[in-house]
Design a protein around this nucleic acid. Structure first.
Length: 364
DNA sequence: AACAATCTCAACCGCAACCGT
DNA sequence: GACGGTTGCGGTTGAGATTGT
């Protein structure tokens, strides 16, 4: 393995080291110590340049090097330090005993960086990628702040048009995004108070009372009552009567999004309990830092299933990752409902763009 | 089994910082 | 301060390993 030698100037050997060369280098350094890398290869009887010897020693032969897979803690530390130090691999390595800068750099590029990208997080800034976040950020802004303002509506219209014309997002996703801020006749309504333990509470009352009869609502609520009893939200169109399918279209299923959550500037992500990570709401986009836990391979906080039929308008979500009572309770608070709606949207985007959001990547 | 695609990681390269003269 | 040599760092490469078809 390794890069092939590009030249062989000065008669010095390049390329992969042989066991014999390794032994020579180790023997010499054990007897004489290292330093003065320029003269070392000659003294050690190696046909290598000093630079190559130094690299071989520091990255491979050093006795205190820890080999093998990075632990969860090491991975967390790397991400946290990278968010502070950037690509200062040597500085990061200095805080990870037994790991070399080269090893950390490789691990970052082959594992962590890809994972962050698929989460929609910019691996350079550790912030959400703006191209993916525009939609949810504007939605969040509207839901929290000034729902009726023309400028916000214009932003959303422009954004939805942009995403729609790009063809990269399922039209239904756009419909759901639109439904977050518009009722069927274009009026804004507040996000529904969502409760996975009580699916009937997912009905946005304003819409229902405006556009559907009370009997329709009651019948739908009865049909819905059987679903979502085990943390699973399942709205199957085939199980609804014809009269109520259009109402179901207005529903936004609840799915906590575990990808992003806030942590205070003084609070280390390393100390944040997993329960918090799995229940935290989506963070507004002006936030600069995201917790490491959100991108770690934490089984307890990883979405294990997210399935949505492409061939119909069914919405089927298994939210088993938030199946504990404590976690569910966190989602019943009204002040998180709006953020949860955006979280739902982000989860759906995650499903729609697997090349960016790869859920399976987070599960060991 | 054969081939292609993708991933991994040891090693190279170029540059900047450092140090002694 | 200028210069040259040395060291260290970060980006990149590409052979071999692994996985998928």
């Amino acid at each position: 393995m390794g890069r092939a030698p590009c030249c062989d100037k000065n008669g010095l050997k390049k390329g992969p080291w042989t066991p014999e060369e390794d032994q020579k280098l180790v023997d010499y350094i054990q007897q004489n110590g290292y330093g003065n890398w320029r003269t070392l290869p000659k003294n050690a009887g190696l046909q290598r340049c000093g630079k190559s010897c130094r690299l071989r020693w520091t990255n491979y032969l050093r006795p205190d090097i820890k080999r093998g897979r990075f632990s969860f803690e090491e991975e967390e530390t790397i991400i946290q330090l990278h968010s502070i130090l950037g690509n200062k691999w040597s500085a990061i390595a200095a805080r990870l005993p037994g790991r070399t800068d080269n090893e950390i750099k490789n691990y970052w590029n082959t594992h962590i960086r890809k994972r962050l990208l698929r989460m929609g997080i910019d691996p350079v800034t550790h912030s959400p990628r703006l191209d993916l976040l525009d939609l949810s950020s504007i939605l969040t802004s509207n839901l929290y702040n000034n729902p009726g303002s023309d400028s916000h509506m214009a932003n959303i219209s422009r954004l939805l048009a942009m995403h729609s014309s790009s063809g990269s997002i399922n039209p239904e996703l756009l419909r759901i995004a639109t439904s977050l801020v518009h009722d069927p006749v274009g009026n804004y309504y507040a996000p529904a108070q969502l409760d996975p333990l009580d699916p009937t509470r997912m009905i946005p009352d304003q819409v229902l009372t405006q556009h559907h009869s009370l009997s329709q609502i009651q019948a739908l609520q009865q049909q819905m009552a059987g679903y979502g009893s085990t943390g699973q939200v399942h709205i199957a169109e085939s199980n609804l009567s014809d009269d109520h399918r259009d109402i179901a279209q207005d529903y936004v299923p609840m799915m906590p999004f575990n990808g992003f959550y806030n942590h205070g500037s003084e609070q280390s992500a390393l100390t944040m309990p997993a329960e918090q990570s799995s229940s935290a709401a989506f963070r507004p986009p002006n936030a600069q830092n995201f917790s490491m836990n959100s991108v770690m391979s934490t089984p307890s906080s990883s979405p294990t299933h997210f399935k949505k039929s492409h061939s119909s308008s069914n919405v089927y979500i298994n939210s088993s990752c938030t199946s504990t009572e404590d976690e569910r309770d966190n989602h019943t608070t009204s002040n998180s409902a709006a953020a949860d709606n955006c979280s739902n949207l982000m989860m759906m985007m995650k499903f729609e763009m697997p090349e960016i959001f790869d859920v399976s990547e987070f599960i060991y």
